[in-house]
Amino acid sequence: MPGRFDISSRIVSQKEIAPDTFLLRLYAPEIAENAVPGQFVMVRPGLEEERDPLLRRPFSVHRADPDAQQIEILYRVVGRGTRMIARKQAGSHLQVLGPLGRGFSLPKGKIPILVGGGLGTAPLLFLADVLEEKRAVVVLGAVTRSQLLRLQDFSSTGLEVLVATEDGSLGNRGLVTEVLDRLLGRLEKDARKNVVVFSCGPMPMMRAVAGLCGNYSVECQVSLETAMACGLGLCLGCAVCSDTGAFLHVCRQGPVFPAGQVDWSKI
């Protein structure tokens, strides 16, 4: 098992790139060197001696730059913890534990399709960065144009990027799943064996993506979110139901799972 590190990480920069959505850059050499796409970190919102809020918050590694020894986190302010993190200035420090969990696994020779909705694009940019298969396609969706995050950065990876907005303000009008449906529908049956879908986004979206891939018999990996206390496999708090009825632990066995392993009726 690769190492996990608990480090006091200096904030290199923090920018509000969309309303309530922040891009945080941290100096975290050990994590930048060891992280793989789909892994996450646990960030403490307060100081060590503060006991409220008590728990650290999980965030996907949005980008890792081993040369600069930095990582990026893309997050939205949804509650107290994220609000506290958003107030931190460059130069101050955050306690960060990582890299944690199991990331995406890249089957050799398969063409990846990356499907992200809303903040679900967070782990996918890191994945797009490291993909060697340049025929990969990225499908990004949001309610409206201004909520499409990091579009420029996805484009500069050189991969084909398709966009869907629910209001039609950019790209296809509609849902990412409609774009995915068309992509997969166009493939010959044999070609579908050579495709793998990586998905992260709101649960209803991932459920739909998993369903589509099931119908087309296309391999699919999803990145799940649950409440977490430790992120290390200590508390067993991050359970989700699996297809066998047993529980999966998102922080250790995931957060990325083969879509078929998840019992979608119980999420």
């Binding site: 008590l54 409440a227 977490m228 067993l236 708090g237 359970a239 119980k266």
Partner: peptide, 9 residues
Amino acid sequence: GNPPPRIAE
């Protein structure tokens, strides 16, 4: 064990 959610802050 119990069905999720299992923890709350």
